[in-house]
Design a protein around this nucleic acid. Structure first.
Lengths: 247, 247
DNA sequence: GGAACGGTCTAATCTAGGTTAAGTTCCGAG
DNA sequence: CTCGGAACTTAACCTAGATTAGACCGTTCC
């Protein structure tokens, strides 16, 4: 399970915590593209872990505009926050066909209380999500369209590489240009213009939906991108067996 | 301590957890407006709790643009995420003169591990922060300037009321128009235009920096605002003594 | 008292990105 | 094989908000 690996890297779980995490009862289901997992206003009873495929979170404004808030790749928890907050404040939907493990809210909460190291690991997971939200606020609020598109393509490249779905900055973009536009606060027309421009500028090559970033350094600069906010590396050392926690 | 009250409302702490939370060692300091608490790239060793005054978080883009990511009111933890993530991905600064309690990173982590109910309460706190980030992505990404300004003024009204700093939708805005612009992804010039317009439309009255929302319902509609994302109300029942956690 | 300064306000002009409207390409279904 | 629909693409035009440039405060500090 990639999720367990991610937790271990980030929070350094002890063996028994690892067991407990894997012992979580879940129900796996396969869902088609576009399936709704949580709707704004719902009181969800289960929390979803993405096993394969892609999903996204979004909100709809009063005027009917849609803002995509997050993209999720395999191994991501889709809505850990719904285990602790009573009513959902946004929608979660599959982007592609996806396999999803549903874990009961209560099971998550109980595990977090019974095994604090796991609680902290899940907490960290949501903190990294937060960090990405913050970067998206910046992307959408203060970068021009060209930079913005470059930035998100860089982010996707790293995140997909992390789960083995990209190699040498080459990956299949799991979303339509319209969805991409909704993630960037732009119109599909303009996203298309920028993508064409990126091709002409020799930054990317597109064939269907696969993106190849030709020159990572130039792309990173063009996208004002650093990976700091993704919080890879530098794992914490925390576990129930940690001596510092022994009191 | 307003922070403890907030936690109790949200996570329903037991008496001994309450004690432990209050027993956290801290160092209180008074800081002038504009003081830097954390800088992007830092490895902070302490976590700050805002006792009085205001603070904000922001990021600077490569082109020098600034995006304000969050406003914090008394009782807010400013950077709980820094207790668990190694290097900070953004800046935190006081907005006004402020009293701040610094709590050692390790103390927070140890408490979260030793008293899972408190860990969960802190987790919830960061989840609510997240929810606000998400709303800000939407605000900045998909709402026009007019709606955007109304929305943030509504948010501030409720959040300030929550900590006793607003009454009848009347409060002192703790930031300059330039800072407001940076929070909204707009220019100060345009923020000024919109504020004037809001006055002309009879939605607000401004005298110096105090804002009075004259007609809350109209303002809420104009700002496409709902308070769902602030996650007030509906407390969870969780504590170390919770029978469900006893295993 | 006045100089310097940070904040507010305003008008004039400009442009990045939105809007509208088609055409095109690609598939899957029948 | 061809029909229908969704995604992509492009061009022409338009507008919300940016940019630029000052004027006009208060207030603090000589």
């Amino acid at each position: 399970m990639p999720m367990v690996r991610k937790f271990e890297r980030r929070a350094g779980l002890a063996a028994d915590d690892r067991e407990a995490l894997l012992a979580l009862p879940y129900q796996a289901r396969s869902l088609p593209a576009g399936a709704h997992l949580v709707r704004d206003g719902d009181r969800p009873q289960a929390c979803a872990l993405l096993l394969s495929g892609f999903a996204f979170r979004h909100k709809i404004t009063g005027e009917g505009g849609r803002q995509v808030i997050a993209l999720h790749v395999p191994g991501d928890f889709l809505d850990l926050q719904n285990s602790l907050l009573e009513v959902s404040d946004h929608n979660v939907q599959t982007l592609t066909e996806a396999e999803i493990a549903f874990i009961a809210r209560d099971a998550i909460r109980e595990l977090a209380l019974a095994r604090p190291a796991i609680g902290v690991a899940m907490w960290i997971d949501t903190l990294v999500d937060s960090s990405i939200f913050r970067e998206w606020v910046v992307n959408v609020g203060r970068r021009d369209a060209y930079t913005r598109v470059c930035h998100i393509l860089c982010e996707f490249s790293l995140r997909l590489e992390e789960v083995g779905l990209a190699e040498n900055h080459r990956y299949e973009l799991p979303m339509t240009q319209e969805q991409l536009a909704d993630a960037l606060g732009l119109t599909p027309v303009h996203v298309n213009r920028v993508l064409r421009q990126l091709g002409e500028d020799g930054l990317i090559v597109r064939t269907k939906r696969v993106i190849l970033i030709q020159d990572w350094d130039r792309m990173r600069d063009a996208g004002d991108f650093t990976d700091r906010y993704l919080h890879y590396g530098s794992p914490l050392r925390l576990s129930s067996a940690d001596p510092r926690a022994a009191r």
